[in-house]
Simulated scan of single mutants.
Amino acid sequence: MSLADERLPMTERVPLQTSSSRLSAVWLGARSAHEGDQDVARAVRNVFPRQPAAARINREHHLLITDVFAQRGITQILDLGCGYPANGQHGAAGPLLSQNTHEVVQRRWHAASVTYVDNDPDVVNARRTEVAATAGQTRARTLLADITDTVDLLDQLTRDAAVTRDRPVAVLAHDVFPWISDDDAVRRCVDSLREWLPPGSALSVTHATADMTPTWIQRLTGVYAEAGLSFHPRGRGFTTDLFGDWEDLYGGPVRVIPTARHQPGHHESKAPDFHSAGYAGVAIKPSA
């Protein structure tokens, strides 16, 4: 059975402009034919040569932690700010990173469901096209939503039964909050999700930071601003506070550490912290 997007209309095509999703695809090895993307990518690499490596570190963490959730029997995944599919026109070039969230989960649980969420209509169209091509083989769907409008997001999830609250849900919020400029909007979004999620659910966050390389990240932020992109790296304390009173995935207080060091199987786990240029943390909602 497919939870594909037959009932959800394709979004209207819009002119393609440089976006965080398009740049992320470039960092992961996709070839963009759009001159604007390439211009911004060159400018970013000029001020922060490690940006492509940081994006790959983040993506590998995404795949590793998704597999951890599947191993723990969490079969509902909510992928916020999902970005383009990891194969095809926008996909990653390397085999290590050319997997999608639903492929990782459904290797262990064929009946697991994955809900992709993004506020970029072109990303949503690409995701829906991918899901439609595998209709009957995968339980995945894609929602067009702004996660800062959490009321609307939760309403869509409930109305379409994309996620049910009778069993745990794993929420992936990887490299999504740095692109939201309002600190309070990020906090409200996460607070609403943590309250809504059933016990045993998981929240995984990665967030860019200037803590390790302040000068480089300041220059990077300026390049993005010139391209019309709002980029807001934040410190360890901000990311830690997002988890509230939840416990770390492995017990005890939540660990918020450089992304490459969070999962022992990460290929870059021994790389210098500034290669990550971001923090990762994963927590579980307690039963009481």
Rank of each mutant, 00 (worst) to 15 (best):
T66I: 08
D67I: 04
V68F: 13
V68Y: 12
A70T: 09
Q71F: 13
Q71D: 15
Q71C: 14
R72I: 07
G73W: 10
G73F: 08
G73H: 08
I74Q: 11
I74W: 12
T75L: 02
Q76G: 09
I77D: 04
L78F: 11
L78A: 14
D79L: 09
G81H: 03
G81N: 04
G81R: 00
C82R: 10
G83R: 11
G83I: 09
Y84I: 11
Y84F: 15
A86N: 15
N87F: 10
N87D: 15
G88V: 15
Q89T: 12
Q89N: 09
H90M: 14
A93D: 11
A93Q: 11
G94D: 15
P95V: 04
L96R: 15
L97Y: 05
L97F: 04
T101S: 12
H102L: 04
E103T: 13
E103V: 08
V104G: 02
V104T: 14
V105Y: 09
Q106Y: 09
Q106L: 02
Q106W: 01
R107T: 10
R107E: 08
R108S: 10
R108F: 03
R108V: 06
R108I: 06
W109C: 00
H110I: 02
V114Q: 02
V114M: 05
Y116E: 02
Y116C: 01
Y116L: 01
V117P: 05
N119L: 07
D120R: 01
P121V: 08
P121S: 12
D122I: 11
D122W: 08
V124L: 11
V124P: 00
N125R: 15
A126G: 10
R128P: 04
T129W: 03
T129P: 00
V131C: 06
A135L: 11
G136C: 03
Q137H: 08
Q137P: 00
Q137N: 05
T138V: 14
T138A: 09
R139H: 14
R139D: 06
A140P: 00
A140Y: 03
R141N: 11
R141D: 03
T142C: 14
T142G: 07
T142E: 05
A145C: 06
D146W: 00
D146E: 01
D146F: 00
I147V: 15
I147W: 12
I147R: 05
D149T: 00
D149G: 01
T150R: 01
V151G: 08
V151Y: 03
V151I: 06
D152L: 03
D152A: 07
L153E: 07
L154S: 03
L154V: 10
D155P: 00
Q156L: 12
L157A: 03
L157G: 02
L157T: 05
T158K: 13
T158W: 05
R159T: 13
R159C: 07
